[in-house]
Amino acid sequence: MDILTINNLSKCFDMKAKKRIYAVKDIDLHIKEGEALGLVGESGCGKSTLAKLILQLERPTEGEVIYKDEDLVKKKFRQMQEIRNELQMVFQNSANMFNPYFTVKQIIMEPINDKTVSKEEKEKMIVAMLEKLGLDESFVNRYGNELSGGQRQRVGIARALISQPRFVVCDEAVSSLDYIIKKQILDLLLSLKEQMGLTYLFISHDLSSVKRVCDRVVVMYLGNIVEILPRLDEDARHPYTKALLAASLDIDPRNRTKQKVLYKEHGEKSIPKEGCIFQYRCLYANDECRSKRPELKGGDGDHLVACHLCRD
């Protein structure tokens, strides 16, 4: 059962430019109810843009996003407003994540649109949510800029979960936390997922936390999906996924000296006119890669790869 179906989704920020550059191009994706879908890729590959396109925080250039048999792209601002509490987002941590004049209470209260809920009930909900996330009620009257990075991140998570959503985008939700809190938050996200029946789109640079949480992982490169794989491990087949995995840091000191670079480091990082999206930086690119765009398909069930070289 799919909670969200994304068909042919594209976004170009500057439609007037002579050479149109797509931040996200022709994305087809099915997000299953109750799964934690990971989304990985290097900085600037369109992960956050894709998330914002799904939630209609940026309007797509073309394509559709089907939720409950309705196309979100066609919905107007007011119509989206009605279902926003079901589709929430934990924003990437930054200094201007919260309004500097808002207290933590006001920040978390913002998604509770239901006017029938009394102020006391709202406050109870907020304190309960804060305590679930390891903060206490003394934070209620603090201002956003008085919080540390980790506290800010947790307030952001509390805010996204307070309205009892069905689908949550976690955009780098744990990236600025230390490892202890990171593990706690990841455990919490998983247990909340069980309790509330949530579906996650989990965006991260941090491959280890993606491994920890996700049921399925989507790998993006320059606005295109290059591989969808059940687990982020050695079974990766696309050269880019392999390169990404090889680039992750290892805490084992014996592995430190090994040079594991599986892509052309100085390769041109631009979108090719035709052929495979990764051709400029791929070590194995051949003539077919330069002339024909590979489709996202795969032999065995969940594992899809967009690569000419991974067919057999």
Partner: peptide, 20 residues
Amino acid sequence: QDFVMAAEAAGRSKTYIAFK
């Protein structure tokens, strides 16, 4: 700013965002 988009994601109206 991020918090303006976050308010939109929270399902707030344009008037609310403009004033608050």
